[in-house]
Design a protein around this nucleic acid. Structure first.
Lengths: 221, 221, 221, 221
DNA sequence: GATGAATGAGGATTCATTCAT
DNA sequence: TATGAATGAATCCTCATTCAT
C-alpha cells in the first residue's frame, strides 16, 4: 500500500476514470446540443473529449447509456440545486413571486445546462432514452403537481396533472424562445413566460398561494 | 403502347409526375412522423411509396428537398384552408371566441397533418431545413402579428413579435400535449390551450378585440 | 507486508506466478470451451480469471500463447496420466481389451478436459496454433503408430501412419458424439467407438495383438 | 427490349441480382473455407466477390444469412445430385458395394464443395447457424437412418439412430483426412473409410443388405 | 421514367494489446 | 506485479446517392 495514509483515496484509477466519465459526458452534452442525439456520433463525442472511441466504450456500453447517464446527472444536479428550495412554499407568497422565482431558477439551470433542453426534445430519440427522459419529465411534473396540490386541495388529481403538464409545456416552449435570444430580448422573453404562467394560474390558485380557490377547475372560455 | 403521339404528352407525363410526387411526399410524411427526419431513410420512404429509390431521386435531388417541399405544401394548404378565414377578424368578436376558433382550426389541421408537427420540432434537423422551416414558422408568426397589430395599433413591433412568438410557442407546446392524448382528455387539453392563450392575451387586447388596451403590455410581474 | 526480505523471494514470486498462470489457463479453457478460440476474447478470459487484462499479458504475450500453453499442458498431463500406461502392451492382450481400455482412458481424459476437444477442432483456428496442435495431434499419432508398429512389424510405415490417422479420426468423431450425450446414451456411444475400432483393426492385427497379420493391408472392399 | 427473344427472361434485373447472389455465395464459400465462419469478414467476402460491402448487404441481411443460404443451396444440390440415387437400394446389393458407392458419391460432392465441410464443423458457429446446420446434419442422418431401417427392420429406433450418427461421424472424420491428402494417398484414405464403414456395418446388416441379422447389434466388446 | 443494383464513406461497437500508475 | 485506462484498427452494417439497363 504505497499510499499516503489520508482520508479517502479508495482507488486512484477510479479517480482517473471518474474524470474521463465527466469529460465524456461533457463532450456528449456539447455534441448532443450541437447536432441532436440521433445525429451525434460516438466517434465525434470521443473526439470532442479528446479520447479514442475505445475509451468511450470502456465507460459507456453504447450511445444510449451516455444520454441516460447525462439525464440522470442533470436530474440529480437539479434536485441538488433547486429541488429542496422549491418544495416548501410559504403560503403567504404572492403567486407572481413564486412563479417568478421558479422560472428564474429553472432558466438559470437550463442556461447553464443546455443539453437538458436538447435531450428533452428529441422527437426521434429512440425508445429506451425516451423512457428515461420521460422519467425526468415525470419527476418534474410530480414536483409541480405537489406544489399545485398544496394550494389546490379540492381539485381532482387528473386536473392537477393536466395543469402541471400545461405549466411545464409553457415553460419548455418559453425556454426555447429564451435560449435563442440574448440580452434584453432574452430578459423580455423570460418576463413573458412569467406572465403566461401567472395569468394562467391566477384564476386557479388566487393571488396569494394561500387563498385556496373554491371551484378549482375549468371555469372559463 | 408507350405513348399515343399527340400534343398533350407533356401534360400526361406531368400528371404522372405529380402523382408520383404526391405519393412520395405522402410516404415521406408517414416516415418522418414515424421516425423523425434524421432517422428517416430515403430508401424507407421509397419503399413506403412503393417505388424504387432511383425513382425518388428522379423527383427530388435529396432528402432535404423532400422535407422542404413537404413544408411548402403544408404551408400552402394551410393558407388555402385557414389563411383567409383567419385574416379578417370582426373587431366585435369576443377574444375568447376568436382564440377558440383559431385554436380549433389549427388543431384540426395538425391532427390531419401530423408531419407538420414532426417537421417543426426536430432539434436535429440540419441547417438548411431548419431555415426552411423557420420560413414556415416565420409565416405563421407574421400572420399572428398581423392579427395582433390590428388590435394593438400602438404597441411597438418588437413587442408584437414577441407576443406572437409566445402565442405560437404556447400553441406548439399545447399541441404536443393534445397529440399524445385521446378523447375527453384531448378535449380537456385543447381547453387548456385556449385558457392559457386567452388569459395571456386578455390584459393586452381586452375582452373584445376592438377594445384597444391603453397600458400596452408588459407592466406586470 | 510486501515481502519478508529473505532468500526465497524469487520462489515465492514464481509460486504466485504459477498460480496466476494456472488460473489464467483454466479461465482460458473455460472460455475456449464456451465460445471457441476465435470468439474468445482475452478480456473475457481475464475477467473469468478474476484479473485485469494487463495481468494476463504479464504472463502471456498474446492469445495464441494461451492456447499453445494450454495445449502443451494438456499433452503433458496426458502423457503423465496415460502415456506410459499405454506404451507397453502385452502381446497376449486380446485386441478388444486393449482398445476398450485405451478408449476408456481417453474418454475419461477428454471428459475431464473438454478444452482438449475444443482446441483440436477449430476450423478457424489460425495458423500457428493449428501447427501447435498439429504437434499435439502428431504426438498422439506417433503413439498410436508405435503401438500399431509393435504388432504390425511387416507393414510399411505409410500404411501404419494411415491406420493410426484413421483410428484417431474415428476416436475424435466418436468423442464428439459421446460429449453431446449423457448417461446411458453416452455409454452406448462409447461402446460404438470401441466396436468401430475393433472391427476396423481386427482384420489387420488379429484377435490377439500377438497374432501378427501376414498381409497387413487393404484386403477387403 | 434488346433481348434475344427467348423462353424466359421474366426480369433482367433479377438476373443480374441472381448472378450477384451466386457470386457472393461463391465468395463466401471461399472465405469460409479459408478462415472459418467466425473469422470471415463480410468485407473480405465482398472483396472476394469483387463488389462493395453495400452490395453484399443488398442481398443478404447479415453474415449469418450467407451461411444459411449457402447451407440450403448445398443441401438442395446434394438432394438433386445424390438424393434419389441413394434412396432405393436393391436388397441384393452387396454391402461393400453399397457403401463404396455411397462414399464415392459423397466424397465427390464434398471435394467439389469444400464449404460443406467447413460449415459443418464450426465449434464456434453461433446459434442460429448451428441450428440451420443441425438441420443439414439431421437431414443426412435421416437419410442414413432410412437406409439402415430398410435392412434392419427389427432394430429399435434409437439404435438405428445411433448407428447412423456413428456412420456419419466416421464419414466426416474420414473426409477430413481425405481432404488433406492428394492423389494416391487420398485414394488410400477413401479406401480406409470404406473399410471402416463396411467392417462396422457387416455384423449388423450382413454380407448382403437383404440378409437381415438376427442378433441385432451390440453384442460385442 | 422506372428499376434495382452498386457504391463507399461513415457509424456503432469490439478487442487484442499497451501503458501509466 | 497488478490494475484498469487507453488505443486504434477492424468489424458489421446503413444509407444517401448514382448508374446501367
Amino acid at each position: 500500500m504505497p499510499e499516503t495514509p489520508g482520508k479517502e483515496q479508495p482507488r486512484r484509477r477510479q479517480a482517473r476514470g471518474e474524470r474521463r466519465i465527466a469529460q465524456l459526458l461533457e463532450a456528449a452534452a456539447t455534441v448532443f446540443c450541437a447536432t441532436g442525439y440521433t445525429a451525434a456520433s460516438t466517434n465525434a463525442i470521443a473526439r470532442e473529449a479528446g479520447v479514442s472511441p475505445g475509451t468511450l466504450y470502456q465507460f459507456f456500453p453504447n450511445k444510449e447509456a451516455l444520454a441516460i447517464e447525462l439525464g440522470d446527472r442533470l436530474m440529480h444536479e437539479m434536485r441538488e440545486t433547486y429541488g429542496e428550495a422549491l418544495a416548501p412554499v410559504d403560503p403567504a407568497t404572492p403567486l407572481h413571486e413564486a412563479v417568478s422565482a421558479a422560472v428564474d431558477r429553472f432558466i438559470a439551470f437550463n442556461t447553464e445546462h443546455p443539453v437538458f433542453f436538447a435531450l428533452m426534445h428529441g422527437p426521434d430519440i429512440p425508445g429506451r432514452i425516451a423512457e428515461e427522459h420521460d422519467a425526468l419529465h415525470a419527476a418534474l411534473i410530480a414536483r409541480i403537481e405537489e406544489l399545485l396540490a398544496s394550494v389546490l386541495p379540492d381539485t381532482p388529481g387528473t386536473e392537477v396533472t393536466r395543469t402541471a403538464q400545461v405549466c411545464l409545456g409553457i415553460y419548455k416552449a418559453g425556454l426555447e424562445l429564451v435560449l435563442i435570444h440574448e440580452g434584453a430580448e432574452r430578459a423580455a422573453y423570460i418576463q413573458e413566460i412569467k406572465h403566461v404562467l401567472i395569468r394562467y394560474l391566477e384564476p386557479l390558485v388566487g393571488d396569494r398561494l394561500g387563498e385556496i380557490q373554491l371551484t378549482g377547475g375549468d371555469r372559463q372560455g
